Amino acid sequence: MTEQAIIAGCLQNDAAAQRELYNRFSPKMLSVCYRFAPNREDAEDMLQEGFIKVFTQIHTFQNKGAFEGWIRRIIVHTCINFLKKHKKFNESLDISYADSVHVKEETVPSIMQARQIIECIRLLPVGYRTVLNLYALEGYSHKEIGMMLDIEESTSRSQYTRAKAMLENILIRKKIIEAPKQDFQWLAAFNKS
């Protein structure tokens, strides 16, 4: 079934088209949810809520840009709303890991698996994890993140900086990377995975 046929079917509330849309996009969108969620059950809840929104809002898709990108934006916003609703974003932030990690120019070896990085990102406090995901992986600006999370732009910047340092420290301690490493250019390798 083509993407246009899926969209047309979903506009008619055709169950087969909805099932095809879900089967085609849910694995990738679950990985997006998983990066934001504290556990698999929450990720699955985020995914379900997100796809309900996709199905109820599909009439707003205007064929401007990629359909997958449109779905992804809905899923990301659903994840943020889920965290806010369940007060998970407002949990206190532990900055004890954010000690000074010195960074030098290098890249992570190509054998680094995206799954390992995701698991390490999930170890970050929810606020740090959310800002890191939105900025480094989803491409939102700190201004947009501030508006989405009801925080100051400067808070987004500082949480991102602390998240990078904390994540790098976790990666070093788990021996996924060798100390010290440079920036997060290596993160672009799994951007939008």
Rank of each mutant, 00 (worst) to 15 (best):
K85R: 12
N63M: 05
C120A: 15
V108C: 12
E20K: 14
I145L: 04
T60G: 10
K88L: 15
I95Q: 03
R40E: 11
M29V: 05
Q62R: 12
A16D: 12
L83M: 08
L149T: 08
I71Q: 03
T56R: 11
A8H: 08
P109L: 15
M112D: 02
R19N: 14
K104I: 07
E106K: 14
L134A: 13
F190D: 04
K181Y: 00
A114T: 08
Y135W: 07
E119W: 01
I118D: 05
Q57H: 10
K104L: 03
T2M: 04
P27E: 10
S158G: 12
I172A: 14
M112P: 02
C79K: 07
I170Y: 06
G146L: 10
R157E: 04
E41N: 11
N39M: 08
T130K: 07
L21G: 14
A37I: 01
S96E: 14
R72D: 06
Q12H: 13
R129H: 10
M147L: 05
C10K: 02
R24P: 03
A179F: 03
M147H: 06
L167V: 06
I52P: 02
S158T: 12
E119V: 05
A5N: 15
E44A: 14
E49N: 11
D14N: 15
A98T: 12
Q62S: 15
L167Y: 02
E44M: 13
A163T: 08
P180H: 11
I111M: 10
L83Q: 00
Y140D: 08
L123I: 06
R40M: 06
T56I: 05
L187D: 02
G50E: 02
T2A: 09
L171S: 05
H77F: 07
A114G: 15
E91N: 06
A98V: 09
E20S: 15
T60C: 08
